[in-house]
Amino acid sequence: MTATHIKRVYRHFLIYGLLIVLLALFLFPIYWIINVSLQPNNELFRFPPRWLPSHLFLGSYKAVLSSADFLIFYKNTFLVASGSTLLCVVVSILAGYGFSKFRFPAASLMLVLFLSTQMFPAVTLLIGLYSLYSSLHLLNTYTALILASTTTALPFCIMLMKTFFDHISKELGEASEIDGTSQLGTLIRIILPLSTPGITAVSIYTFLVAWDDFLFGLTLVSDLNKRTLSPGLSLQFLGEFSYNWSGAAAAAVIATLPLLVVFLFLQRFMVAGLSAGGVKE
């Protein structure tokens, strides 16, 4: 009894110790970004660097928050990222289910083909992409950015959803079909509730792919009113003559805060796993 007790304490010690070390490593740069954002640029060139701002400097935050451009970039990014997430999640659920449940002769080949669309360097595709979106009259539209981010994320979302659906027993679906539920009904009512962790992971992934997009936003959109965050920040803070580190950091902090709330909300859906669904293995 005591031996297992000691073992448990030891285990806890190990888990929390590792957690603290890893969190420290991952959060230190975040701390540094916040630290940089609270100092004027001229304070950054000193050694040893300041661990805390010598005085609270809010100039960068004021500048970012009072910049109409930043708010536009922010809104655009949010629209594009949300649109891409919805589109990608729905399309990848359908396709993932299709690939998982129904065996076609060329299914494997098709999945590999889907996958290989991601394997060409974006830099060499730029001119082709630009011409394509130009001929579809989609330049300077949210649609262009949503399509571009969705297609970037889609192949993996499909594969991931397929993997998750593979886990869910086929018998479950078949049983429900015998009950007289339609195939689409089975997917929506029986299968999807069991796949929430997968769907959440795929949503977060797609959202952040669109969120971090630089190249498409830069190339397919040139209108300042449609600019997204990354190209916008680059335009405002990473100029010809100098970098505005403090400003860029402040913008990153402001941009990231609302996401944290979204994550806090979304991670709840990660908890419901197969264990809750009463699936027989």
Partner: peptide, 26 residues
Amino acid sequence: FKQFSMVSMSLILGTTLAACSSNSNT
């Protein structure tokens, strides 16, 4: 989740349509 997917569907249609109509003719 049925609701969720219905909402997503309609939202997607909505965004896509809105984005298409706001298509600026550069």
